[in-house]
Structure formats: structure tokens, C-alpha cells
């Protein structure tokens, strides 16, 4: 993976190879979209953020330090864009999330839908919905830490690099986010 990414980036930088960039987008689009969706809580905005993140990465590729992981750099652009957006429409995230939670989940079904009975599907869907809704209620700084840790499955160190925070702060954000989710989970 890393070797492939390095080769693609070299081709883009040297020859402005757009096909190489398209390959790069294909490699990372799901993860970038996922972060954007979990952060913003709506599929329309997630698409918009993901697209902008890739366009920015393309335009600023010269400033990417090749000695570091490309995904870290790309996820950093993505989370920053999300946080900017959330800041711009601040009151949204606690009130709106519940209404918006259901859309955009169509992509998830492939995993399990074939094996589950209809009523089980409903339960699974509701659980998905619940997680999405509750994550969307977290303040953005806890939200991003929880998403990167448990949905993207990244290490504390990587999360620190992405969010530009010391490891201990990342841990604190994860602990608080986790605790807030736990309290709400008790009620269902």
C-alpha cells in the first residue's frame, strides 16, 4: 500500500499525472467519506467535504512531506474541513443530528443484510442509527477522536498527528467521548 501510494504521488508531482490522482482518490475515498459523514452527520455535506478534501490535497501536494504517512495528511485536511463547517453552523450538531441520522446509511447494508431476518435488520439499522446520532451529539473535538479511534481504527499516535494534539490530550478526548456515549447507552 505504502509503496503504491508513494509511486502515485511521485507521478502526480512530477508529471502532473491525473490518472494517478484518480487512483489515489479511489484508494482513500471511502475512508475520507466515512470520516466526513461521521463528523458532519449528513451525506450531502459529507460528499461535499470529501470532495473538497481531495481537491485541496491535489492543489497543495507540494506541501505534503513524503517522509510521513499520506493518510495522516489527508485525514488532517478532512477533519479540519469538518471542524470548520461545524463551527460555522454551530447549534446544529446537538439538535439536528437526530432528524438527519437515517440518510446516507444505504452503503452500510452490504455487510450484513443478506444474513439477517427483516426484524433483525430493523434492529441492526436502529443500532447503526443510534451510534451515528449519539456520535453526532458529541462536541466536535471528542467526536473526531472517537471516530478516528474506533471507526477508522487508528493509533493514539496517528490521531495525535492528524488532529495536531499531544497524545495525552487525544486520550482525554477519547475517554470523555466514551464516557458521554456510555451514559446515553445505559438508557436504551
Amino acid at each position: 500500500m505504502d509503496a503504491v501510494v508513494k509511486r502515485l504521488i511521485k507521478a502526480i508531482k512530477k508529471e502532473d499525472d491525473q490518472d494517478a490522482f484518480a487512483e489515489l482518490v479511489d484508494l482513500y475515498k471511502d475512508k475520507v467519506y466515512q470520516i466526513a459523514y461521521r463528523m458532519t452527520g449528513n451525506s450531502y455535506e459529507a460528499q461535499d467535504v470529501a470532495q473538497e478534501a481531495f481537491l485541496r490535497a491535489y492543489a497543495n501536494l507540494e506541501s505534503y512531506d513524503e517522509s510521513r504517512k499520506f493518510s495522516t495528511w489527508l485525514f488532517r485536511i478532512t477533519t479540519n474541513l469538518c471542524i470548520d463547517r461545524l463551527r460555522k453552523k454551530k447549534p446544529d450538531y446537538s439538535l439536528d443530528a437526530e432528524i438527519k441520522g437515517t440518510e446516507g446509511l444505504s452503503g452500510y447494508s452490504q455487510l450484513s443484510s443478506e444474513e439477517l431476518l427483516p426484524e433483525e435488520q430493523v434492529v441492526a439499522f436502529e443500532m447503526q442509527d443510534w451510534v451515528q446520532t449519539e456520535i453526532a451529539k458529541l462536541p466536535p473535538k471528542y467526536r473526531s477522536a472517537i471516530i478516528l479511534r474506533y471507526i477508522e481504527d487508528l493509533s493514539i499516535k496517528e490521531i495525535g498527528d492528524i488532529l495536531d494534539l499531544p497524545d495525552n490530550t487525544v486520550k482525554t478526548h477519547i475517554h470523555r467521548g466514551r464516557e458521554a456515549l456510555r451514559k446515553r447507552l445505559r438508557n436504551i
Partner: peptide, 21 residues
């Protein structure tokens, strides 16, 4: 809680996203 969060299915980007970008 952690298991619930981890169990959320992984989303896929909309199919036309690469083209649009």
C-alpha cells in the same frame, strides 16, 4: 459502548465521487 461504535458498518463513498473530483 466501544463495541457498538466499532460495529458501525463501514460506509462507502458515493459511486460517482471519483469522477466528480
Amino acid at each position: 459502548t466501544v463495541m457498538f461504535v466499532q460495529s458501525t458498518s463501514h460506509l462507502e463513498a458515493p459511486p460517482r465521487m471519483t469522477d466528480q473530483i
